[in-house]
């Protein structure tokens, strides 16, 4: 399933990017620069989506127990962190020629940076805790609380005045621009979803090893000899 999703994602991303680069016309005012939207917007949607999935896994990990939820929680956190980092970089690259600056502390950019740092923090917490049980519990609590930032990121451009523009909708985006947006949105979702499934397998195996069956009792005298 994981590999299949990754393959589907790659095909969608290639076709979406091809369409966006070679079929869609230039934007009236931004020209070619606007084409970065075809990766930036799908990255943004999926960063928020993966964080949301991670929150769901965190909740289930606490509610039901079971290591599967914890493994997927870990994988999705990493996916969301990667997408958040990409999001900030793509945004800066788009901002420089259009806004005139790489970065400014406007509400959307600030809350997105907070989201990235929160994800890094939870991942740091996970890697700092050796006991799988505590790691699963503490990081799940952290994820649920940090998730508060996700709706704030989304609504930041509506609640406060900002440099970042509001969300676009099919009414504000010409039709030939929408095709690559959708293709790449599902492409990133499939690719990151597939990678997360594969990454969760790795996490599950590591946890299994950590919890692994108790070692065979040592033969009598072994400890003495070892000394």
């Amino acid at each position: 399933m994981g590999f299949l999703l990754v393959a589907v994602g790659v095909v969608l991303l290639l076709s979406g990017s091809w369409y966006g680069l070679f079929v869609s016309p230039q934007e009236r005012y931004m020209g070619d620069v606007q084409r970065i939207m075809y990766v930036h917007v799908p990255t943004a949607w999926n960063a928020l989506l993966l964080f949301t999935f991670a929150m769901g896994c965190a909740l289930m990990s606490l509610w039901r127990g079971g290591w599967g939820w914890d493994a997927h929680h870990e994988a999705l956190l990493e996916g969301a962190a990667v997408l958040s980092a990409l999001l900030c970089v793509q945004g800066a690259i788009w901002a420089r020629p259009t806004w005139g600056v790489w970065w400014d502390w406007d509400p959307r950019l600030t809350t997105t940076a907070v989201m990235f740092l929160a994800l890094l923090g939870i991942l740091a917490l996970r890697s700092a805790v050796d006991d799988p049980e505590k790691r699963a519990t503490w990081s799940a609590v952290a994820t649920i609380i940090a998730f508060v930032d996700v709706p704030i990121v989304y609504f930041s451009v509506r609640w406060w005045n900002s440099l970042h523009q509001m969300q676009s909708s099919p009414e504000t985006v010409s039709a030939p621009f929408i095709v690559p947006l959708r293709l790449n949105a599902f492409g990133v979702l499939a690719l990151m979803g597939g990678l997360a499934l594969l990454r969760a397998r790795v996490a599950a195996r590591r946890t299994a090893r950590e919890l692994g069956p108790a070692l065979e009792p040592l033969p009598a005298g072994a400890l003495v000899e070892a000394r």
Partner: peptide, 14 residues
């Protein structure tokens, strides 16, 4: 001291 352009959420083909 610092000039930033803020564009809308409209993207139009010519």
């Amino acid at each position: 001291k610092r000039l930033m352009v803020s564009h809308g959420n409209e993207y139009r083909a010519p």
